[in-house]
Design a protein around this nucleic acid. Structure first.
Length: 104
DNA sequence: AGCATGACGGAGG
DNA sequence: TCCTCCGCCATGC
């Protein structure tokens, strides 16, 4: 794992209970920013102790549903347990997004 | 050493 | 709002 990858993981650890952020944002919050695509790739292989379910698409969609519905269901369950709400289309409501500055 | 492929995202139609 | 087209770049085959 690269240095940037480990740094990205430390950023994910900082996401507070009850809030979410996007792949693109965690990717921008490190010393040498990476694209959301790379952030997503790294999240796919992240350590199990990370609050990985608090990272969603910039539009609030659960990207995990695309490749693996089981993981998607698991993510939605964990978010719901944190009192995070979804709109009719299954997207996390904007009010639950952590301001980008809070990741720095 | 190519090349397709994303747990992405923003712009444009 | 939805859809497509691109830029992105680490990984795996």
């Amino acid at each position: 794992a690269s240095e940037s990858q480990r740094e990205l993981y430390t950023v994910v650890e900082k996401i507070p209970h009850g809030t979410v952020t996007s792949y693109g944002n965690v990717g921008k919050a490190i010393t040498n920013p990476v694209s959301g695509l790379v952030a997503g790739r790294w999240m796919h292989v992240c350590p199990p102790e990370l609050p990985w379910w608090r990272v969603v698409g910039a539009d609030g969609t659960l990207k995990t549903y695309n490749l693996n519905p089981d993981v998607g269901h698991e993510q939605r369950k964990r978010l719901t347990e944190e009192d995070i709400e979804f709109d009719e289309e299954g997207r996390v409501k904007a009010e639950f997004f952590l301001p980008f500055e809070a990741l720095l």
